[in-house]
């Protein structure tokens, strides 16, 4: 048992050490430098706004589309079901830069890109591109987590509701959906975390407006480690705060 604890502790420390080192390595003077420089300050504030705006819209889109498909996959058997499941899992295994190229080819060039541009939804270097990337990479996390919730609902819970007078939609909204509330929150946390951490695909599709993750990369390559470190710290704190808030809402323990 001791050996197992030791091995497990090694992994926990492996993750914890960089977290602590990041916090203690930040030089407060860098923050002063950023704050006193109009350009850097607006770049940082813009990245914070873009990150939250894009990730909030992406999560909303994922909830509106992902929860229904999770329910359908859990309840129905249909031709090509395995294919649909694989498609939804695909963003988890595709390299990030490849995902970026795919999104670019599908929604920026070609006939679909033309249609999107005509309705003012140009995804290249716009927040629409950032949202598209976040939806793409977050989808499997939300759909799979919510689906596991639907799978765990006893069939009898829905049968009883139907027999007692609830229609299919009333059963879905009043019985099934509240029963997977925790899964929806967990799926939201995972998809959100995956979305805000994305860099590879964003570098190709929408380098600008920069998200915090892209800004870390940008400042690391142009201004050096100290500046990148200050954005990293902000992102860490924001991520931890949102993570704690959602877990509280979820009613789970940290």
């Amino acid at each position: 048992m001791k050996a197992l604890v030791a091995l497990g502790t090694t992994l926990v420390l492996f993750i914890l050490v960089p977290l602590i080192v990041t916090f203690i390595s930040v030089n407060p003077k860098t923050f002063e430098g950023i704050y006193s420089n109009d350009y850097l300050r607006s770049q940082l504030l813009g990245a914070i706004v873009t990150t939250f705006e894009a990730s909030a819209i992406a999560i909303l889109i994922l909830l509106i589309t992902g929860v229904p498909i999770a329910y359908v996959l859990s309840r129905k058997d249909f031709p090509l079901k395995n294919f649909v499941e694989s498609v939804l899992d695909l963003p988890m295994v595709i390299p990030h830069s490849v995902a970026g190229i795919m999104i670019l080819l599908a929604y920026a060039s070609g006939p679909l890109g033309g249609v999107l541009r005509q309705i003012s939804l140009n995804i290249v270097d716009s927040i629409y591109g950032t949202i598209a990337v976040m939806v793409f990479v977050g989808a499997p996390f939300l759909v799979n987590t919510v689906r596991r919730g639907f799978d765990s609902i006893p069939r009898s819970a829905e049968l009883v509701a139907r027999s007692l007078g609830a229609s299919k939609y009333q059963t879905f909204l009043k019985i099934s959906l509240p029963m997977v509330k925790r899964n929806i929150l967990t799926g939201t946390i995972l998809a959100w975390a995956r979305g805000i951490s994305e860099v590879g695909a964003l570098l190709i599709v929408a380098y600008n407006p920069m998200t915090l993750s892209v800004l870390v990369y940008d400042w690391y390559t142009t201004l050096g480690l100290n500046y990148a470190l200050s954005v990293t710290l902000i992102m860490l704190i924001l991520s931890i705060v949102v993570f704690i808030a959602l877990r509280r809402l979820e009613g789970g323990e940290l």
Binding site: S156, L159, R162, S163, L164, G165, M179
Partner: peptide, 18 residues
């Protein structure tokens, strides 16, 4: 459909909504 039949089910696991 089930909701229009006037049948009420009590299943084996009771099917209470948690």
């Amino acid at each position: 459909p089930p909701e229009k039949r006037g049948i009420a089910i009590v299943p084996q696991d009771h099917g209470l909504w948690p």
